[in-house]
Design a binder for these strands. Structure first.
Lengths: 373, 373
DNA sequence: GACTGAGCTGAATCTTACA
DNA sequence: ATGTAAGATTCAGCTCAGT
């Protein structure tokens, strides 16, 4: 049953072996994919449930409550249940993929290792793992772990010797004529891009369009067929339409299907020049003082002094410094030394190499050029 | 048989249940770990082999080579063999780990998904996946994929509810007073750091010391026992010695054991004061608010207020406080004032000394340093 | 209109000691 | 084991109200 571009799977007359281009299928993704013809799709992008296994509520330091992903679709009883679900959708995706098509999956440490292993078991050949480095991740409020600041994507072909598509030149052009690396810095999806219904976010895990933009530009050509079995708010469809690719979206939730359809209806295909607007900005590398200690440019225990040699501070193993019983960052201790409200420790502090004083700022330059080399 | 700090496993008189601190064991890591006492090691760092094609037969527990068979079967067999090898060394590592110890593993997309899944299967609880973003990776010469510019580490505790060690403040200090994220930018190991024998690099996959430096500083305390079952050139041992941690290294190759021993012999430990790092408040001795009243740092009857002077509470002789008829601890009344689920009264409440507001936390610091004196 | 500052939010496996 | 209370803890980006 087709309703305004919406294809309803259950009981509907979807013809087997017909490819429902630029349509959204409401239903179970495994059953829906099994209805489609084999070797017919150029790309599968999948954002499956992560199986987060969250505990109770989490509160922010200022008292707010974190709006966590507690939806039923993310709950699995055991790893085994999750694994067999994963194997099933991977098998179905593999069948409909063309032999030279590729698969993208995104996940976090909760699920990505299981997905990656299963995908290799099914015969997929991993081409890259890609790190989405979030420019603005949610902090770790309780100070219990490292800030979870990235998600992982796996890009895989159907087999080891498949002739997959990779638009090398386009990627290089997008990255200021440097080869595109396996780590991508992109902001999370927020602001005007976030799809909302009555002011409330429509989906808890909407992905940024920039992510799909780069994926489709890298691994498909115009006119390609892109299938997303976990369509959600339809980011994949929106970007595919904008870039002149065909999409097929599948989602179990009628609500999400409607939201996605509305969203995609509002998308206009892009002319080439406008594509440039989404290029990534290259961030100037921020160097923490601790990195210099860690990399041996400054030894723990070294003494720092100012140009007038009036103050002396001692460097500790973690990059904090100590002076007269006070401890803190080079900036904090520099400020305390002078009784100033603030201080740029990079220019204030120097290392005495016996002959002369070397400004920390010069050591930072040295470290930066080491990074560039 | 112990030879100049080198412990030879095969046939040697290594006593079961003795912990060979600051030693290198030459032998199979699974057998060697199984000789060590259970619950005795604080940290395991593992850089396991991942070259499936060349190393397949090495992982066979029974021996017996795999004949060159059809591609599909060979691959399946290789994964199987690699998986059981992985499960074996993970089990052995898990046995010798203390219940509050943690495991670090590093790998690439070739093996990390299999290792991660197996590690979850064995009961380890993933705390973070960490991305080592290489500042200077090798380019992809053929232009067929994204430049493989990172490796992945997994950090895991022995079980879900284990009380693992994480030096939050030290990590934050090392990163300019921002939480340390899950993506670490570090240069690859090259130049003078690269261990060479007769001008040729001694090991193909030597890891940078900066990587181990951050790992040990983040997840161990001085004096901890760190075991590395794939010791190679002994980077783990070198950094452990420098940071005042004990190491136990295991490697199958006598050649690597010798190289590592020479390298570690040349390392000088940091002196203790340089090894100091920022301590988290959680580690500081607990001070009841009543003690401040008792010792005259705050007078009974004094008025407390918040930074915005919106709320006022009155201190009573027993260290409880009162506000609008409610009475309780500084935390309870602070929470009630804001309508928040909880509150740190130490940082919320201030005393007005006529000129400015003094945070209770600063009075507590004064009391604590008074205790030390 | 431009600027400032307070407030809100994002795939989160998010405390510890003691009774 | 469970419950209770102490007390430790946040970064970047966007929105919106108020100069």
């Amino acid at each position: 049953m087709i309703q305004g571009g919406l294809l309803l799977l259950d009981g509907g007359p979807m013809r087997r072996n017909a490819l429902p281009l630029d349509m959204i299928i409401q239903g179970d993704c495994i059953a829906a994919m099994n209805e489609l013809p084999e070797n017919s799709v150029d790309l599968v992008f999948a954002d499956p449930p992560y199986n987060l296994q969250l505990g109770g509520d989490l509160f922010r330091p200022e008292g707010g409550r974190v709006d966590a992903v507690t939806d039923d679709w993310d709950k699995f009883d055991t790893f085994q249940t999750y694994d067999s679900f994963t194997a099933e959708w991977l098998k179905a995706a593999r069948r409909i993929l063309k032999d030279d098509g590729t698969l993208w999956v995104i996940g976090s440490y909760h699920n990505i290792f299981r997905v990656g292993a299963k995908l290799q078991d099914e015969g997929f050949w991993i081409l890259n793992d890609i790190i989405w480095r979030k420019a603005n991740p949610m902090p770790n409020f309780k100070g219990t772990r490292f800030t979870n600041a990235h998600e992982t994507l796996i890009w895989a072909s159907k087999s080891e010797n498949a002739r997959y598509r990779f638009n090398y030149k386009a990627m290089k052009a997008m990255n200021e004529e440097l080869q595109m690396r396996s780590d991508w810095v992109l902001p999370i999806c927020s602001g005007g891009e976030r799809v909302k219904v009555d002011g409330v976010k429509a989906h808890p895990t909407q992905k940024p369009e920039a992510l799909l933009y780069r994926i489709l530009l890298a691994s498909t050509e115009p006119g390609a067929v892109v299938l997303d079995p976990f369509f959600g708010t339809g980011t994949t469809g929106a970007v595919a339409k904008r870039l002149g690719r065909h999409y097929i979206g599948i989602d179990r939730e009628p609500r999400y299907c409607r939201v996605a359809q509305d969203r995609i209806d509002g998308v206009l295909p892009l002319d080439e020049s406008a594509m440039l607007t989404m290029q990534s900005k290259k961030a100037a590398p921020r160097v923490p003082f601790g990195a210099l200690v860690e990399n041996g440019l400054i030894q723990p225990g070294a003494t720092l002094t100012d140009l007038g040699r009036r103050y002396r501070a001692r460097v500790r193993a973690d990059g904090s410094v100590q002076m007269d019983g006070h401890e803190g960052s080079i900036h904090q201790i520099g400020a305390a030394a002078q009784g100033a409200p603030s201080c740029n420790g990079w220019t204030f502090w120097h290392v005495d190499d016996g002959k002369s004083l070397i400004c920390l700022d010069r050591l930072r330059d040295a470290y930066r050029s080491n990074l560039d080399a």
